[in-house]
Nucleic acid binder design. Structure first.
Lengths: 225, 225
DNA sequence: CCCATAATTAAGGATTTTCAAATTTTGTAT
DNA sequence: ATACAAAATTTGAAAATCCTTAATTATGGG
């Protein structure tokens, strides 16, 4: 069955499922209902009902008591929604001068009113960005995406020149703090030392030295330059 | 009772009531249910139910079988919504390069996701316009508006230099046609002749001569320069 | 094997819509 | 002027969406 028109809520669910899938906590590729409920700020039963609906539309598979997984169709729809969202974020930052910590919630609202024409025009004005302000890659209009070859800063090799690719939180406070430390996508740095037992990391950013906690380092992904 | 937070739908209704009130067809200031239903593309019962809700919120008065009228509170809320909508239209045209016939429906969608911060930033980028692309005045953030002193082109005096202030349709086809004739807000023109019995009007626009039907002239408002 | 935890079903509520039927108003024709 | 038909408005019943809380069922580690 071809994907009829999806409601905005359905699209939000799909996008969030994809985000969780990407993060790849679970081995079988299945993701749990409660995790989704948490992220969407919604009760587990609400998730369950929506799962049934999305399954009936052929957008995901559901193994009861185990989890859900996007079908190929669902994946493509999720990526279209992610494109809308990330283009909106890039537009708000690149064109309208918002700060990166302000745009996630804003873009969530805004993207509900964006059709394809508007999305593409915004993409053009934002300079056809490859990644959103948080560093996540932006899918093509056709729903394709190039995976990134990066890893958590907390697992990064020491004394190696690296570049921050993306950050994994959307909490405004943390984002603002990271920006204040100069730890944004594109920044070059070097891990000098990591204290054992999930202790703090010592970084060299340009000429500056920084110390950040392990929990913050887990929110940063980087790749060897 | 103070106006709690209004749903987007409630705001849409209020805005549309205001638009109808402005047009001022009915003498008592009351406007009919069916007219609203038509404009909102919704059935009369839906309008009726929403009227009850808006009346309970103190946003409008309802005289059964006669019509509705905005309260002062309702008027202010309607104007806030109109500002969002018209700023969105101005932004789409002035900043993003859309044509004036494309933006009404687009702005309707988009304005649902616009909070006050975003609205004001869009206003700034659009150059703090006083009127929307169709010439309608844009209310202030506080919900105030300056009335225009203009009249229908079909009633305009002859051989008098006038300026188009606004157009009263949002139908893309008509708007595109008007633009092709050069009949957009700000344009100077002169009515040379109007055929009797609602016949066509002969206009002089710059050095060009134009003939338009009476029904089109009724969609254009102008004022003496 | 038991029991904490996670997932699911059951039941119900809010919002906004539609369709159908009842009611009021209005306009026209005798 | 009055009566009747047409039009507009209102009310009632029910559906679509998406949410909640509370109770039930499955899973899997000690």
């Amino acid at each position: 069955m071809p994907p009829a028109d999806l409601s905005p809520t359905m699209r939000d669910y799909l996008a969030e499922v994809y985000r969780l899938t990407e993060r790849g906590q679970t081995p079988g590729g299945y993701i749990g209902t409660s995790a989704l409920a948490d992220l969407l700020d919604v009760s587990p039963p609400a998730v369950n009902r929506m799962i049934t609906k999305l399954k009936d539309a052929g957008l995901l598979e559901h193994e009861p008591y185990q989890g859900i997984r996007l079908t190929e169709t669902g994946r493509r729809e999720a990526l279209k929604e992610l494109r809308r969202h990330r283009i909106a974020e890039a537009f708000l930052v690149n064109v309208m001068g918002f700060k990166w910590h302000e745009v996630h919630a804003e873009a969530e609202q805004l993207s509900r009113g964006m059709n394809e024409t508007l999305t593409e025009r915004m993409a053009t004005m934002a300079g056809h960005p490859a990644v959103c302000p948080h560093g996540e890659p932006i899918p093509t209009p056709e729903g394709e995406i190039t995976p990134m070859d990066d890893g958590l800063l907390s697992d990064a090799p020491h004394d190696t020149e690296m570049e921050i690719t993306r950050v994994l939180t959307r909490e405004p406070d943390r984002l603002e703090y990271l920006a204040a430390l100069g730890l944004t996508p594109g920044t070059r740095l070097r891990v000098l030392h990591a204290a054992p037992f999930h202790g703090p990391l010592q970084l060299k950013v340009g000429r500056e030295y920084r110390i950040i906690g392990h929990n913050l380092a887990e929110l940063i992904r980087a790749q060897v330059v």
